[in-house]
Design a protein around this nucleic acid. Structure first.
Length: 879
RNA sequence: GGGCAGGUAGCUCAGCGGUAGAGCGGCAGUCUUACACACUGUUGGUCGGGGGUUCGAUCCCCUCCCUGCCCACCA
């Protein structure tokens, strides 16, 4: 043991005064990996604790959102190890269909001026894999920098061979169950990515535009016109009817008649006027143009009235020949301008009314989606009822609870999921056609088989791939082998952002219920969204998103983690402020120096038990505060309140341990009677502080754990501390309060804090006399003496432990101080009178419960004391 | 149009029936025998507006106003 201590002392004294995270973090992370600390053993007898990482996109780089999310998971994992669990934190990445394909296509275009079609499917996919191998690991490396304790040997990718096979098996299974079907439906089409999207991938944004009013002529009624309002005049050429509400008295009589479509000019077809309840007669003119090929509502109206469908657009959003010669080839937005122009020329444009409406945008490409009729694969969700009740009945608990309602509402209004994507990068749909090849524009197939392998000669596979989330929804169980599932499924908790509650959380619950007959996780913790100081979402285009790696380089991973945790209230959005990270770093440094200080006092006793010694009031006080902090931390973990955990640690370490306990302890080191107990308390507390901190600040706690010699193994397998049930020690608080008052007295005279003064204390209590040394140290006094009576020419301040006196002769200049003090006194006098008046006149206070009155009394006491101090100070200066 | 969250000191946030707190910043001192990434002291708030319940409201109720998110086929 002696050797270890000697080594520690050398080690610490060689280290800089300030904590330098870089070398420490690298060293320990390498060591943890080497020792296999993160490896989960499915055959362990310890209780299981498991999580699956929300797989980041392979194309991704670490954002603050990832930092938040993964820090929380790491905290939970490390705490679970400390509380004796076998921990599995399963990492991996997502192939992210559209995102990845887009990145590679963009590069291809830039570097080789080619499109994916120039390469062909096979070659293109080879390029994507190549890209993935080269750049796909970036985010994983970054997570390691953060300190994440994932079991890296189990890293999975959603396109791993086994995983991919499982995805296809699930497709086949659901197909056979009749839940997956193919159909020609109105889908959300992205004209840039050239694929269908699910409803969840469409985000509506308010857009300023115009509501264009134009007239159409009623056929057979000369001079009769209908006025139609539309935001999309470019679709007029695809109109196949005009609809009014049958209960609308203005128009009901026209149902059955027809109007003349104004565009295209060469094909001004006659359109029937139909009656349909979907028409809102409050909106616009109450007359709706019906374009079944380019609007979801219109499509449904079309179905009800058996209207023809004229698709006037190409997949890329340009107009086709059916739009007429004036429009063919134009982009949809150019066509809009052109259509308005044509209407004006025809003299039927009535007016353009500014109008704001919600337009659906493709989440990825950030362009308005186009409702488009196409042949796609759809899934009728399995286990929706069970998934709903699992959360309702708290088989799965959400933190914060309010997301339960959001989840429930979505499941209650669930629509079939469009799962096919017209991409190449992804899981190929395991469906085969004989004869005609399948295509998204969709002609009927003569023969269809749903199976993974080709049925043989002459069969062609469906060219489409599956929505990325169709693979992600199996993540909780398909990333595990049988033994792992047996031990670790269902997982303990899922930590994720609320933005993917529908995309991922809800679907994973359904998949878990369908394929494991068990929910995939017990708890779901939803983090907040990180915003900048102005409350804006972090985004690349705004340039308001700091690079977490820069932050780690500047402040250390621990500083970043701790700083972020302190400002991350439960599930509330977080306003990011670099200052908070600076504070995180400062905190680590504070801890570091507290430990350095301890090492300077002699050997550390790893198994120190304070109760073997006579303890000072400060030691007792600290031990009781430590218990309090532990209780708060426990309750914080129970409710996933990470900011509370971090804040408790911050306060305890900085204020209680450093500011008061260590400062008071300095008095004990020269007192053999007290030294042992104080050091034992310090060792005991430090050991627990490091353990409690380890989940949040893994690196510095590990470094100090070894630096102080608390153990030879990693801190993360030490035992988590439990509260001892100590009793509070009120005497210490009295001393601290008194010291603060006395310091204020010193400041009252503008005396610098490093100026050693001679203090006197008049007290009636014996125990106070035995704490004089400590009080002297806390006051940075030259001397402190007990006196029986008030000395002459001394300032005085009454405190809970007695009256402090400060002899002023030769210490301050009387004439300059007098004026200032008199001014102060006037202000305080006013406060005292205010409280006195309240106590005397307020009718409620007269009959109030005791705590109210005592509160007022306390205020009065405080102010009176302050006044006394000033008066004493003034008097002490003489005339 | 519906739903949810939030609006407390200059900033980030606690408090959620007893008369408002912390950290940081600011200000003034200090390199006081671990830490200037520090120490000591101190200044900051009609707790978004307006009503109501109550002896008493930042906290409960109503209403309005802002901010942000989610959902919804109003062209």
């Amino acid at each position: 043991m002696q050797g270890i201590f000697a080594q520690n002392r050398r080690l610490m004294s060689e280290l800089a005064k300030a904590y330098e995270p870089q070398a420490v973090e690298e060293k320990w992370y390498a060591s943890w990996l080497e020792q296999g600390h993160f490896v989960a053993d499915p055959f362990s007898t310890k209780p299981a604790y498991s999580m699956v990482i929300p797989p980041p996109n392979v194309t991704g780089v670490l954002t603050l959102g990832h930092v938040l999310n993964n820090t929380i998971q790491d905290i939970l994992a490390r705490r679970a190890r400390l509380t004796g669990h076998e921990v599995l934190w399963l990492p991996g990445t997502d192939h992210a269909g559209i995102a990845t394909q887009t990145v590679v296509e963009r590069r291809l275009r830039k570097e080789e001026k080619k499109t994916r079609h120039d390469l062909g499917r096979e070659e293109f996919l080879r390029r994507v894999w190549e890209w993935k191998e080269r750049h796909g690991g970036i985010i994983i490396a970054q997570l390691k920098k953060l300190g994440c304790s994932c079991d890296w040997g189990r890293e999975r990718f959603t396109m791993d061979e086994a995983y991919a096979r499982k995805v296809q098996e699930v497709f086949v299974d659901l197909y056979e169950k009749g839940l997956i079907y193919r159909g020609k439906r109105m889908v959300n089409w992205c004209p840039v990515s050239l694929t269908a999207l699910s409803d969840e991938e469409v985000i509506s944004k308010p857009q300023k535009g115009y509501l264009y009013h134009f007239r159409v002529e009623v056929i057979g009624e000369p001079g009769a016109f209908l006025e139609i309002a539309t935001t999309r005049p470019e679709t007029i050429m695809g109109d196949t009817a005009v609809a009014v509400n049958p209960r609308d008295p203005r128009y009901a009589h026209l149902i059955g008649k027809s109007v003349r479509r104004p565009l295209p000019i060469e094909n001004r077809a006659a359109l029937p006027i139909v009656g349909d309840a979907a028409v809102d007669f409050e909106f616009g003119t109450g007359v709706l143009k019906v374009t079944p090929a380019h609007d979801k509502t219109d499509y449904e109206i079309g179905l009800r009235h058996a209207l023809p469908i004229i698709d006037i657009m190409n997949p890329d959003g340009t107009m086709n020949e059916l739009a007429g010669e004036d429009f063919a080839g134009l982009d949809r937005f150019e066509a809009r301008v052109e259509a308005v122009e044509k209407l004006r020329e025809l003299g039927v444009l009535v007016r353009e009314e500014p109008h704001e409406s919600n337009v659906g945008f493709s989440e990825r490409a950030d362009v308005p989606i186009e409702p488009r009729l196409s042949e796609q694969w759809f899934l009728k969700y399995p286990k929706t009822g069970e998934a709903r009740s699992a959360v309702r009945e708290r088989l799965i608990q959400f933190f914060p609870e309010r997301w339960e309602k959001v989840y429930d509402h979505w499941l209650g209004n669930i629509q079939d999921w469009c799962i096919s994507r017209q991409l190449w990068w992804g899981h190929r749909i395991p469906v085969w056609y004989k004869g005609v090849s399948g295509s998204s524009t969709g002609e009927a197939q003569s023969a269809v088989r749903c199976q993974i392998a080709s049925p043989g000669e002459g069969w062609t596979q469906d060219p489409d791939v599956l929505d990325t989330w169709f693979s992600s929804w199996l993540w909780a169980h398909e990333t595990m082998d049988d033994a792992t599932r047996k031990k670790f499924y269902p997982t303990s908790v899922l930590v994720t952002g609320p933005d993917i509650i529908f995309f991922w959380v809800a679907r994973m619950i359904m998949a878990g219920l369908e394929y494991m007959h068990e929910v995939p996780f017990r708890h779901v913790y939803f983090t907040g969204i990180i915003r900048d100081k102005q409350g804006r979402k972090m985004s690349k285009s705004l340039g308001n998103s700091p690079d977490p790696l820069d932050l780690i380089a500047k402040y250390g991973a621990d500083g970043l983690r701790f700083g972020l945790m302190r400002i991350a209230p439960q599930g509330q959005d977080i306003r990011f402020d670099e200052q908070q990270i600076i504070e995180g770093r400062n905190f680590c440094n504070k801890l570091w120096n507290a430990c350095r200080f301890r090492l300077l006092q002699g050997p550390v006793d790893a198994g120190a038990n304070p109760w073997d010694h006579e303890l000072s009031i400060f030691a007792k006080d600290l031990l009781s505060k430590l218990d309090g902090a532990m209780a708060r931390i426990e309750s914080g973990y129970a409710g996933y309140r990470f900011s509370e955990i971090a804040q408790t640690l911050y306060d305890f370490v900085w204020a209680e341990f450093c500011d008061w306990f260590i400062e008071a302890a300095k008095a004990d080191f020269s007192d053999p009677a007290r030294k042992a107990g104080t050091l034992a308390t310090m060792d005991y507390a430090l050991r627990r502080i490091l353990l409690l901190l380890h989940p949040v600040t893994p690196f510095v706690s590990e470094e100090l754990w070894h630096g102080l010699g608390f153990g030879s193994g990693s801190i993360q397998f030490a035992e988590w501390p439990r509260a001892k049930g100590t009793v509070p020690e009120p005497k210490a608080a009295k001393v601290f309060g008194a010291v603060t008052t006395a310091r204020t007295l010193r400041a009252t005279y503008n005396l610098p804090s490093n100026k050693r003064l001679r203090w006197l204390l008049q007290t009636g209590e014996d125990w106070v006399n035995s704490e004089l040394t400590a009080v002297g140290v806390l006051l940075n006094a030259e001397t402190i003496q007990s006196v029986d009576a008030r000395p002459a020419h001394a300032a005085a301040c009454p405190t809970e432990i007695g009256v402090f006196f400060l002899p002023l002769e030769g210490v301050v200049d009387p004439s300059t101080e007098r004026n200032r003090l008199e001014g102060e006194m006037a202000k305080v006098q006013a406060e005292v009178q205010k409280v006195q008046r309240k106590l005397a006149t307020d009718s409620f206070v007269q009959n109030a419960p005791p705590e109210v009155v005592s509160d007022h009394r306390k205020r009065l006491e405080t102010w009176t004391a302050r006044l006394e101090t000033l008066r004493g100070a003034r008097e002490a200066l003489g005339e």
